[in-house]
């Protein structure tokens, strides 16, 4: 199982002003621009409904500030900050 390549996906939008899911505050809403990270990670998220252009709502952060709780496609999902950092989003009202 180790011969199979797992390239890390570099985000295309990589300038510093770029907004990540982990930057959103509770109550803020974003639209997914792109997901980075390992192939398995990206694919897992896409399977869970975090597709490009999907709308995502940050509901809250855990009591110890990590992980975060999101609402996507009508259900609640939790991601760690370090993983949310790999997701580029644009803020929507």
């Amino acid at each position: 199982m180790f011969n199979f390549k797992r390239p890390h996906h570099k985000l295309h939008t990589s300038d510093e002003n770029d907004l990540r899911l982990s930057d959103l505050k509770p109550g803020e809403k974003g639209r997914i621009v792109e997901i980075g990270g390992s192939e398995n990670f990206r694919h897992r998220l896409i399977e869970m409904g975090l597709t490009r252009d999907a709308e995502i709502w940050v509901d809250k952060y855990a009591p110890l500030r990590d992980p975060m709780e999101l609402i996507v496609k009508g259900y609640h999902l939790s991601l760690r900050g370090m993983d949310a950092q790999k997701i580029a989003v644009e803020r929507i009202a």
């Binding site: 398995n40 999902l77 939790s78 760690r80």
Partner: peptide, 10 residues
């Protein structure tokens, strides 16, 4: 290790 992707079911 696997990424932490956890559903919070109703």
């Amino acid at each position: 290790s696997k990424p932490f992707v956890l559903e919070l079911p109703p």
